[in-house]
């Protein structure tokens, strides 16, 4: 058929290319591409000043600052502790290692609303953890950070794991024979090898945190200008029937997400190149 001849690079004896690709493109367009384009097309019906006012109002800017700041801090903490967790899981043997390994995926599997109410209960003033802390966590920006750290936890570990597992002893032995201390070997040999994967995991955790809603809204307290995240602000605008305002903010976040996606694709290519694949 014409369709397949134009796209196929190589003839294949297998049937079903037209049907499979046709269905894939149709489904992708109906579910993802056309609805997403609605967000961009909607903002084109706004005048430029109206759009600019909607995305730069002080309350919106405060929400950007909180969302990006807390997401960055959460991804940073996850990068540091994710490296430690991954190192321990790959290199050491201890009782319960397999269970701990499986538990790392919990934030992927646990619905965000469940995580949200559990964290809020733990970190409230009379909660198991909150009652031991000298400062308030629930209903403050720190609470936002706690929820985003929970959500981003698996990304760094799962991105690093295959790279660390591939890292065999030879290079470390070579470093040791050449007189490097263990710390020097880590800093000069191991860290450079895992850096692309570490950055990828960081970026994935950061990207996920930017859009997170369910786990944050319970613990954040949602005070405008203080602990209100961008996704919540979009919902608030929708509930006030300010659809253009909500869409304008959504488009800003979508553009940020797409830029991050490009960066992540680049980082993944770098990871593969570093691993010589």
């Amino acid at each position: 058929m014409l369709f397949s001849r134009a796209l196929l690079k190589r003839h294949s004896v297998l049937p079903g290319f037209d049907l499979a690709l046709g269905f894939t493109l149709l489904y992708l367009s109906c579910i993802v591409l056309v609805p997403l384009s609605a967000a961009f097309l909607k903002t084109f019906t706004m005048t430029w000043p109206a759009f600019w006012d909607a995305v730069t109002a002080p309350r919106v800017v405060a929400a950007y600052r909180l969302t990006f700041g807390a997401s960055f801090a959460a991804a940073l903490v996850n990068a540091v502790f994710g490296l430690v967790v991954c190192w321990v899981l790959v290199r050491y043997d201890f009782p319960g290692r397999r269970i701990v390994d499986a538990l790392v995926d919990l934030p992927f599997a646990l619905p965000t609303a469940v995580a949200g109410i559990a964290l809020t209960a733990l970190y409230s003033g009379n909660g198991w953890i909150g009652s031991f802390l000298p400062f308030k966590v629930s209903f403050t920006p720190v609470g936002v950070w706690v929820a985003l750290t929970f959500i981003g936890l698996p990304f760094v570990v799962r991105t690093l794991q295959p790279v660390l597992e591939d890292l065999h002893g030879e290079v470390e032995e070579a470093a040791a024979i050449l007189g490097a201390s263990r710390l020097q070997t880590f800093g000069r040999v191991i860290l450079p090898i895992v850096t692309p994967a570490l950055l990828t995991g960081f970026a994935l955790a950061f990207a996920r945190a930017l859009g997170e809603y369910g786990s944050v809204i319970f613990i954040a307290g949602n005070l405008p200008m203080v602990s209100e995240i961008v996704p919540l602000l979009i919902i608030t605008k929708l509930e006030q029937f300010d659809v253009p305002g909500a869409t304008a903010i959504a488009v800003v976040m979508l553009v940020a997400s797409f830029l991050l996606l490009l960066a992540i694709n680049g980082l993944q290519a770098w990871t593969r190149a570093r691993q010589g694949r």
Binding site: G211, E212, I234, V243, S257, N265
Partner: peptide, 25 residues
């Protein structure tokens, strides 16, 4: 095509809901 299939992962759930309000609301 591979990148486009992954796209929903990088869209905030709230925005995913919003776009369907824009289409069907």
């Amino acid at each position: 095509l591979l990148t486009l299939i992954d796209l929903p992962f990088s869209v905030s759930p709230v925005i995913a809901g919003l776009i369907f309000v824009l289409v069907f609301g």
